[in-house]
Simulated assay, not measured.
Amino acid sequence: MGILNVTPDSFSDGGKYTAVNTALEQVERMIDAGASIIDIGGESTRPGAVDVVLAEELQRTIPVIEAIKERFDIAVSIDTSKALVMKEAILAGADLVNDVRALQEEGCLEVVANSNVPVCLMHMQGQPRTMQSNPQYQDLLVDIMGFFEQRVAACQQVGIGKERILLDPGFGFGKTLEQNYRLLANLSQFKKLGFPLLSGTSRKSMIGNLLNREVNERLAGSLATAMLAVQQGASIIRVHDVQETVDTIKILQYTHQMQA
């Protein structure tokens, strides 16, 4: 899954792809590099990010989705927590809803239930503006597992079938450095719930803080965490650096084939 942030303030590539033509150029590069899904976000969810009004988020995302679907044969994901953005994105051709708030905002469950697109439910403790201030858990894995069970039940209650649900443990969303790596080391535990897993660690502070690297120096760390996530059973890897991640996963998969 290639990341396309059409925002001025995202932590890694804010402001780079806010115009439709530059967004399309980046999409073409990611497709050529091997991306299967393009994830479009119009509101930054980095720690401390400010909220974006509905009209602004629609203006940023919908024209880009329409342009991508018109020009390329590629699956598109809408990264949003707003019901109306989900609805308009699906009408514009979005193939997946990717929600950091796991359909907890008003109207979101109903919008997805009334569509036929799958949804990725992400775990986040708190809200983006404050989530990293002091995240605490009784038991990290048990707490997140319980959250997923609740959200899956809420989805099924409104008619969103099991086959349409994916899970994302939410690296960097209300987790300390140690908690992030404990999550990565035990990602396979979430396979017990019976849903495909999405992992998004690309260029995040969990890499920068461990290695003491700035955002533009986190490629090696991003690739290492991507490989570990695949080994732990993740089905989708959400990344900025598509070509390098595809190469890494190809080597991993080929080596697995060679095992006696």
Rank of each mutant, 00 (worst) to 15 (best):
2 G>W: 01
3 I>H: 00
4 L>S: 05
6 V>I: 13
9 D>W: 07
11 F>W: 13
16 K>M: 14
16 K>T: 04
17 Y>R: 10
19 A>V: 08
19 A>F: 14
19 A>I: 05
20 V>L: 10
21 N>H: 14
26 Q>E: 15
27 V>I: 12
31 I>S: 09
33 A>H: 10
34 G>Y: 11
35 A>M: 02
39 D>S: 02
40 I>G: 02
42 G>C: 04
42 G>E: 03
44 S>W: 03
44 S>R: 03
45 T>D: 06
46 R>C: 06
47 P>D: 08
49 A>E: 11
58 L>R: 12
59 Q>D: 15
61 T>K: 13
64 V>P: 09
66 E>W: 05
67 A>M: 08
74 I>W: 02
76 V>G: 04
77 S>C: 09
77 S>H: 04
78 I>S: 05
78 I>N: 03
78 I>P: 04
78 I>L: 06
80 T>D: 07
82 K>Y: 04
83 A>G: 00
84 L>I: 12
85 V>F: 03
85 V>T: 10
89 A>L: 01
93 G>K: 09
101 R>D: 03
103 L>D: 00
106 E>S: 01
107 G>A: 09
113 A>E: 00
114 N>Y: 01
114 N>M: 01
117 V>C: 05
118 P>V: 00
119 V>W: 06
120 C>I: 12
129 R>P: 01
130 T>Q: 13
138 Q>P: 03
139 D>M: 13
142 V>L: 15
146 G>H: 12
148 F>L: 08
153 A>P: 02
153 A>W: 00
154 A>G: 02
154 A>R: 03
155 C>V: 06
156 Q>I: 00
156 Q>H: 06
157 Q>A: 15
161 G>R: 10
161 G>L: 10
164 R>L: 06
170 G>A: 07
171 F>A: 13
174 G>A: 08
174 G>V: 09
177 L>Q: 14
179 Q>V: 01
182 R>V: 07
186 N>E: 14
186 N>M: 04
187 L>P: 08
190 F>Y: 10
190 F>D: 06
191 K>C: 08
191 K>M: 11
192 K>P: 02
196 P>K: 13
197 L>Y: 11
198 L>Q: 07
201 T>N: 14
202 S>L: 03
203 R>L: 05
203 R>M: 08
205 S>D: 08
212 N>S: 12
213 R>G: 01
213 R>L: 14
215 V>N: 08
216 N>Q: 15
218 R>L: 09
218 R>E: 09
218 R>P: 11
219 L>Q: 11
221 G>M: 08
222 S>G: 10
223 L>Y: 06
226 A>N: 12
227 M>Y: 13
229 A>N: 06
232 Q>G: 10
234 A>M: 09
237 I>Q: 07
237 I>M: 08
241 D>K: 00
242 V>L: 05
243 Q>W: 09
244 E>P: 02
246 V>K: 11
249 I>S: 03
250 K>Y: 12
250 K>P: 03
250 K>F: 10
252 L>S: 08
253 Q>N: 15
260 A>P: 15
